[in-house]
Design a protein around this nucleic acid. Structure first.
Length: 368
DNA sequence: AACTCGGGGTA
DNA sequence: TACCCAGAGTT
């Protein structure tokens, strides 16, 4: 289980630790989640930082801590408000999983975030990286926290040429970290590896000339730092042509729909929309009209197209024609995933960025 | 192991 | 454009 990895044999572990930790002590950034080591704060920050840059996270983290200062506050919060605090951050299942896990900590562990790998890893949304990050940063447990930064940094320092796109490769890096990690200060050690990756050992052009562990870096010694890490690429963005409609009733309320709690943009609100494929404007809008009627019983009459939106996801591209319409007849009651709300109410709900763009189009259309 | 799941910064 | 980011869950 804890076999020493072959990559760290003959590696100067002590001088590496010393150089890395001294550099981190003097040069680390002051970040909101580093103000203290409250496990709840560390946990929230790590979830937000998954596949998301530090600069993007900072304002979200500050706002989130203002709204939900302690674990109990998040456990007791309305999911709709929690989602609103995540609006625009992406990967929305993260925050639903986080609240689920926080409720479990509140109920099963009396509000204390568990400090063992087994217990913390069983929490929803806590994978190998986040488990190691919270354990080491909040509790000082010498567990590896291997993210993209760490794989890039260590692939260079230890000259590891395994494909970091392969899931299996992460385990190799975890073994390397187990060999390298400081048992005196696991928190600083793990954070220092990531900090080095963010500031010095960057993907494109690493700043080797000012790197604190240049002396220990095998890739630099061979002038091969630009070749690492090895990562096979995956591309393949599917295109989806869509039509969406902003339909007003006589009071100026807009018809909106809450997306499924699973899958893309889970639990966010949206304007009624369909994938139109190869249909032309006329056929596409008729399709959309039928969809709205079948889902809600609401009858709409199109006024015209008010805009066009392109929105790119990591694996998908939406091209959306946006229409304006008026509601000509509606049932006594809408099903629970549908609402007719004034703009001021819509702005309290969480919409994906693509549909926030539609709200902007609608505002501009009103001014004309 | 491959795919799904956002949005934005950067060269 | 294409890559990448303090990854995890599902299939």
């Amino acid at each position: 289980m804890n076999e020493p990895d072959t990559y760290t044999t003959d590696f100067p572990i002590q001088s590496f630790q010393d150089a890395l930790l001294n550099w981190y002590r003097e040069n680390h950034r002051k970040l909101p989640w580093r103000e203290n080591s409250d496990p709840y704060r560390v946990w929230v920050s790590e979830i937000m930082l998954q596949q998301t840059r530090v600069d993007t996270v900072i304002p979200y983290f500050n706002n989130f801590m203002e709204k939900f200062p302690e674990l109990k506050d998040l456990a007791d919060a309305e999911p709709e408000q929690v989602m609103k605090a995540w609006e625009g951050l992406g990967y929305y299942s993260r925050v639903m999983n986080l609240q689920t896990a926080v409720k479990e900590v509140q109920e099963r562990y009396g509000g204390i975030v568990p400090n063992t790998p087994e217990e913390i890893s069983n929490l929803r949304g806590v994978g190998p990286y986040t488990a190691g990050a919270v354990l080491s940063i909040a509790y000082g447990v010498p567990e590896p926290a291997v993210d993209g930064n760490v794989m890039r940094v260590l692939s260079r320092i230890l000259l590891i040429e395994e494909d970091i796109a392969k899931p299996k490769t992460r385990k190799l890096f975890e073994q390397a970290v187990r060999s390298l990690i400081s048992h005196e200060d696991p928190s600083s050690f793990n954070q220092a590896l990531m900090e080095l990756g963010a500031i010095i050992c960057t993907p494109r052009s690493p700043a080797c000339l000012i790197c604190p562990v240049q002396q220990e870096c095998r890739a630099f010694a061979e002038g091969r730092q630009q070749e690492l890490p090895i990562k096979t690429k995956k591309t393949k963005v599917k295109l989806a042509k869509m039509s969406a409609v902003i339909a007003y009733d006589q009071q100026g309320r807009m018809l909106i729909h809450k997306r499924s709690s699973t899958g893309l943009l889970a639990s966010l609100w949206e304007f009624p929309n369909i994938e139109t494929g190869l249909l032309n404007d006329s056929a596409g809008s008729e399709e959309l009209q039928s969809y709205v009627y079948e889902q809600t019983g609401v009858e709409i009459s199109f006024k015209g197209k008010i805009g066009y939106i392109e929105h790119v996801f990591s694996h998908l591209k939406w091209e959306i024609d946006v229409w304006e319409a008026v509601i000509t007849a509606e049932p006594d009651e809408l099903s629970k995933d549908w609402k007719a709300v004034p703009l001021t109410e819509a702005e309290k709900l969480a919409f994906p960025v693509s549909h926030q763009k539609m709200i902007k189009l609608a505002k501009e259309a009103i001014l004309l």
